[in-house]
Design a protein around this nucleic acid. Structure first.
Lengths: 121, 121
DNA sequence: CAGGATCCAAAAGGATACTG
DNA sequence: CAGTATCCTTTTGGATCCTG
C-alpha cells in the first residue's frame, strides 16, 4: 500500500525543508570560489551557531548535497565545502521559491531576481 | 543593514517549509472539485492529526494560500477549503521539488512526473 | 581554525478524548 | 462534521565553553 513516506515530494521536503539547509546551499553558491571554509559560511550566515552549521553540513554531506575536503596535514586543520552536482541542481527549486516570493511581495525591494547581491540567484 | 530575515528566500522557506504545508497544498489540488472538506483533506493525508491540520490550515489561510468558506446555517457545520491563486502558483515550486527528487531517485518508482496518481503534479 | 560537548529553552508534533 | 483541549514526547535550536 501507498504511504506518504514514499512520496517523492514528501521525502524531498523532509530533506530540504529544515531551517538553514537551503540558506547554506545558497551561501555555498555565492562568489567565484567553488570551495568555502567553515567560518566563511558561518560569517555569511550571521546568525547561525557553529553547532547548527556543523550539524546541517553533516546532513547535507550524507545526502550528497555537499562535498567536503579536509587537509589535516596542517595545523590548524583546513576544511572546505562545495556543492555537488545534486546540490547545485537544487538551486532550481530555490529559484522557483524566490520567483514566487518576489511575485507575491514577500521580500525586500532590493532583492531583484537577477541582481540581488545577497541571494545571487 | 541587510538581515537574513528580509531575504525573500528565507521568508519563503519559513512560510512553506513546515511539515505538512506543501502536502496539504497538493491535497487541495487533487481531484476535480475546487473545494474540499476538512475530513476529506484529513483522510487524504492519512497520518495527520486534526490538531495539526487545523493549525496548518489557519496559517495557510492567514498567508492567503488557502481560502475558506463556512456555512453555519446547517448542523453539522459545513466548511470548505480551496487554493487561492497565490497557493496554486506555489505548485511550481513543488513541481521543481518533484522533478529534482525524481531525478535523484528519492521517490517511489511509480511516481512519474506526469502520471503519479498520488501527487497529481 | 573547525568544530565537539553540554545544558537548556522553545517549538513542533503525536495521541487521545471531547463537543457544539 | 469540524474542529478544540490536554498532555506528553521529540525535535530543534541557541548559548556557552572547550580543544586538537
Amino acid at each position: 500500500m501507498y504511504t506518504m513516506k514514499e512520496c517523492t515530494v514528501y521525502k524531498t521536503i523532509d530533506m530540504i525543508g529544515k531551517k538553514w539547509t537551503l540558506l547554506i546551499l545558497l551561501e555555498l553558491y555565492k562568489g567565484q570560489e567553488k570551495y568555502k571554509r567553515f567560518n566563511e559560511i558561518k560569517n555569511g550566515l550571521q546568525d547561525i551557531t557553529p553547532k547548527v552549521l556543523s550539524g546541517r553540513l553533516k546532513e547535507m554531506e550524507k545526502i550528497e548535497l555537499v562535498q567536503k575536503n579536509v587537509d589535516s596535514s596542517f595545523v590548524p586543520i583546513k576544511s572546505e565545502y562545495a556543492l555537488t552536482k545534486k546540490g547545485e541542481e537544487l538551486l532550481c527549486v530555490v529559484q522557483e521559491m524566490k520567483r514566487w516570493g518576489l511575485k507575491w511581495k514577500m521580500g525586500n525591494k532590493e532583492c531583484g531576481l537577477t541582481t540581488c547581491k545577497e541571494c545571487v540567484l
